[in-house]
Design a protein around this nucleic acid. Sequence first.
RNA 1: CGGGGCGUGGCGCAGUCUGGCUAGCGCGUCUGGUUUGGGACCAGAAGGUCGCAGGUUCAAAUCCUGUCGCCCCGACCA
Length: 581
Amino acid sequence: MRWSQTLIPTLKEQPQGAEIPSHVLMLRAGLVAQLMAGAYTYLPLGLRALRKAEQIVREEMDRAGAIEVHMPALAPLELWQRTGRVEAFGNVLIQFQVKRGARQVALALNPTHEEVVTDLVARFVSSYRQLPITLYQIQTKFRNEERPRFGVLRTSEFLMKDAYSFDATLEGLNVSYQKMYDAYCRIFSRCGLSYLPVEAESGPIGGDASHEFMVPAENGEDRILHCGACSYAANLERAEVGQRPPAASPGTQQTLTKVDTPQAGSIEQVSRLLGCRAEQMIKTLIYLADGKPAAVLIRGDHEANENKIRRALGAQRVELAPPEVIRQVTGAPVGFAGPVGLPLELVADLDVANVANAVVGANEADQHYTGANAGRDYQIARYADLRNAIDGDPCPRCGGRMQLRAAIEVGHVFKLGTKYSEALAARFLDENEQQQLAIMGCYGIGVNRIVAALIETSHDTNGIIWPMTLAPYQVILSPLNMQQADVVQAAEELYNELNALGVEVLLDDRDQRPGVKFKDADLIGIPLRVVIGGRALAQGQLELKWRWQAEPSLLPRAGAGQAIARLVQQELAAANARAEA
RNA sequence: CGGGGCGUGGCGCAGUCUGGCUAGCGCGUCUGGUUUGGGACCAGAAGGUCGCAGGUUCAAAUCCUGUCGCCCCGACCA
């Protein structure tokens, strides 16, 4: 492609409203243009990169035995009502009415396709002989994001690869799941991403049933914990906290003292008022576990983790109790609950055991206790891991230090079970002529996020640094002077030669000064740059530079096309080979 | 949905507090010329309902009210 004949609107300055590197660079390099909050046009370069990512995904899905289909973006709202997910999605589900003759038809734009694919399988799969099957598509999803942000990382319309496996048995599901997991590893490796599969909340099936594929990046929206020593990794929701060191020495027990804490119902207010640190305090959270009140103790500076609490209480659902219930149970308004004299069984986080002489609520408005000690002033029924992990916490597997990092979620694999097959009657007949529900898994990849995450983690002050596998073009030719006949001729010859050899090449044929061409070449990040310029050309040489290297090398003009094609192939092969390691 | 910021030629900004002449600057674009190894130079030119609506005033980019859009932080995120 000739630069002069395509559309690459590079920007010299940082666009207003773009802050994170991927957003800034995608706009500056002319990859995308914003139409509105959360909706972007992919311009030629951006589209080519997106297509590369898509093709890698497609190849690995096919290789894993998944079957490609293409489902509609539209769905009848009724389908979503059948699984109860109109409410579950709420405002995120884009729905609207259209007129068809005299009728009003209620439609939705699919934010995901469990309903559609399960309905499809329910219609056409009726025997165990047809299973297992994994269907996938690469298609646009629509979600009315409350707050689109971070450029293409969180948009209302995005390209997603979604796959759905259907199995006759749980063992089958595990096999299907593992195939997808392995395919994901290959995909992200081939795309040149430094990714981490992390354990995620698994919902109804429990166990090892969900993993997210995360790319650690400063601007990521997700938080993960990662142990460098043993490679344990989990998202914040899921991460367990390992064995904590016991308290130094109990020291002397202070006497339990009631103190005035007017208007101080939060950890921050109380600590400021009493001059104590948050870690000397214990917060008493009143939950409704399946509708029944329960008391949970967490150290003042820690965050409660509702999933852990739900499991510890053996409940299906937990939620923070409303103010009426708190008042009824504790006799005090919100913010003054405490363990002393509370008529509920106390379940405490493990770290609470190490807080001696704690500050706790007194179950009385505007009153707290100081010097509270478990065993003497209140009894803990049970200790458990109930809080979110924090940076530096011990690893649950090996005891090493875990690191808290921000990350971009690029993929998610999930064992679904029979939730949708049940709601949409996806049954099959097994070998004993018994009706069974298909057991499902679902597997998503944000294709746009692959591109954005790559840029987010692979750039320098001059611009994007593409891996050969995702680069919009493999080679850029930069003839430095379009007024000089021999330069133009050499560039044209090489351009034709490379095209004939199947190399994806961009010829910067603009009549621009060298500086402009260098800056733009760096900005759009094409891996291999070939400079055709007076100096070297006079000696029958071209200049070759990899985007990730500082210095160029010389290449004889004779046979340059073959040599460059070989270099591209080697680099491509090396990048793809990293996936097999 | 709560908090904050910003809307001025294609892009990035100044001017707004303290109302006042023909609304400026840099980049880009167009014409002519000189240049050609890291975002050239000279000369000339085009391009603006100052987001939109209403109000105050002799006079509004500037003050007031409303409204729309975009960005950031938080809440939310199958």
